[in-house]
Design a protein around this nucleic acid. Structure first.
Lengths: 323, 323
DNA sequence: TAAAACAGCGCCAATAGTTGTCACTGTTTT
DNA sequence: AAAACAGTGACAACTATTGGCGCTGTTTTA
């Protein structure tokens, strides 16, 4: 094998193994140890962060920093990757914050000039707005780590009844609607709970108490809801929507699949929804105001009416003659 | 210069220039044409997408596909880039869709195994949920392109009064709250408008009519709101919130800076808000139901009450004795 | 304490790869 | 028809690469 190709393959091999000896690689590539030594030196000069130790159990190592072999990206792919990373800048507190900035800088600096220009032009023309409440990065990192390792952590959480400490075993973390959430097994309640992370005041990643870890290794973000939900059944709903109501409610994915639109733009939602979430739905349909009329089920209608009456009374109490 | 190093430099040179001839490069690198020819062939074999044409004004070209020279990423940077791209998978209709998938695949396949493992473990533990309504990718691409080139396009748009055609000159596109938006100069109204792209039925990227382009090159996503808003002034608001109201409204960034929280968890919003958006605010505070009480200004309170009355009547009409 | 297992250096002859030259073919544009 | 390109093949000259060999030096382990 000619040297130039060998070097490129060596790059990859070296990245694959983290640790290796000269003789090992020499045999693998069918060259002498002397040659391998020289090759590795060259790689080192080319920027691969190699480190070696002499002695009995010495050997070569690639440092934490790894390099990627030359990857061929099309222009569009490079632009796409750039924007993907760029889009996440709104998640100011995501666990990867600093890494992403570095990577982005490197990436950008290696791009040919005309691609840079293209990106510069696009930068002010596309955006991904993600309202995000600021949040301590370290909390996220600790919880994520705990989720991966399935460790128990102790958190100080602001529940409806004020702050309290709980031991939880996190399933994962996710960002949604501007908040970070952490579904977890709560050892206190012996059940699964969803925590909103801006309500978390402090966290102890190593509660000294010897708590037993539950085996939740197979529960992850994509299946925890189905696994942990004790099914309280569905309710059959029927909601009439005005034209405006249709337009507004189309934002919700669970609406879209149950939505029928009339020719004049108005429509109705008909189908089954989980009874357990009835309070959420009541809130939601109340929020649509006069644009939605809950016909079925009765219990949902009642909840909406209760909200309505409560608000009505609230505003009637502050009489000013206009009502 | 030894061959192996020459090849790497050649890679970069070739990426810098887009077009070149053999003799040109041969001279630059101080080798014969024959050698340069051989070198380029090797590069080609290594994956650089070269293309050549014979004849008078022929020469070499690098195709649209470009390659990046070997970039050294640390392990964490690679992971970060991966997740940035991964996070955007929810934007199923973003202009870069297919490119990002390709890039991600390439990127992933070149990562060393232990980093792959790390990513695999994290995949099910972190997520960025972005509810997104499906939308034609081509619309996005056309509008983005028009924004970059400052071209006029004709769209068929579903406004309150049904579908109509308009000629617009887009400023850019952005995703927010699950929708794609396009602020643009509307030639019909001779003013700036914000279009929600799921209400766009069709688009003509080349309206044959010779419309004059306005010079909006300096208006972009980050400044169009300030530049185009005819300021109708602010209104001073005062809204009382229950404890639950505080928690809910903290989601909105414009609330946070104007929010005061009492020791018992309840609180109030006090400050100035743009009068122009009064309908939006009325909607919003109505949506908070009994958790918010609008005290000031009167006009806002009146709007909320109107909604309330409208809804009250709506539900009273469907009498069932429970009200 | 000695042996084993590892990195690392210098030298040199053999060899394998690289290079330039030259003489071709073939295309497109002017 | 000439000019300006790419592309091929052959070959001798050249140079970089290679493998051995002998050496130094470190750390671990028996």
């Amino acid at each position: 094998m000619p040297k130039s190709k060998r070097l490129i393959e060596l790059m990859m091999t070296v990245n694959r193994k983290r640790k290796f000896t000269i003789s090992e690689l020499a045999e693998e590539f069918g060259v002498s140890k002397r040659t391998m030594l020289r090759d590795l030196q060259e790689l080192s000069e080319l920027g691969v962060p190699l480190y070696s130790e002499t002695g009995r159990h010495g050997g070569y190592q690639v440092l934490n920093e790894r390099i990627l072999p030359p990857i061929t990206f099309t222009e569009d792919e490079a632009v796409a990757i750039f924007f993907a990373s760029y889009a996440l800048r709104h998640y100011s507190s995501l666990p990867f914050e600093s890494e992403i900035n570095n990577a982005l800088k490197k990436f950008f600096s290696y791009l040919p000039n005309d691609v840079k220009d293209k990106i510069d032009k696009m930068k002010n023309r596309v955006d991904f707005v993600v309202p995000m409440r600021p949040l301590s990065t370290s909390h996220l990192a600790i919880l994520l780590d705990a989720a991966i390792q399935q460790k128990v952590v102790r958190i100080e959480y602001d529940s409806i009844r004020g702050f309290s400490w709980r031991d939880i075993q996190p399933i994962g973390i996710y960002a949604s609607h501007g908040f970070w959430y952490c579904p977890a097994y709560c050892l206190k309640k012996a059940d699964f709970r969803l925590f909103r992370l801006d309500r978390l005041r402090s966290i102890d990643s190593n509660p000294n108490k010897h708590t037993e870890n539950k085996n939740l290794i197979n529960i992850n973000l994509s299946n925890w809801e189905t696994i942990t939900r004790e099914d309280s059944g569905d309710m059959n709903v029927y909601i009439e929507l005005t034209r405006e109501g249709v337009r507004k409610s189309q934002l919700e994915p669970w609406v879209v699949s149950r939505l029928q639109i009339n020719s004049d733009g108005s429509g109705y939602i008909k189908g089954d929804l989980p009874r357990k979430e009835i309070d959420y739905f009541a809130d939601y349909f109340f929020g649509l105001g006069g644009e939605a009329l809950v016909k079925k089920p009765k219990e949902l209608q009642i909840k909406v009416k209760q909200k309505l009456r409560k608000m009505y009374q609230l505003y009637e109490m502050s009489r000013d003659g206009s009502f």
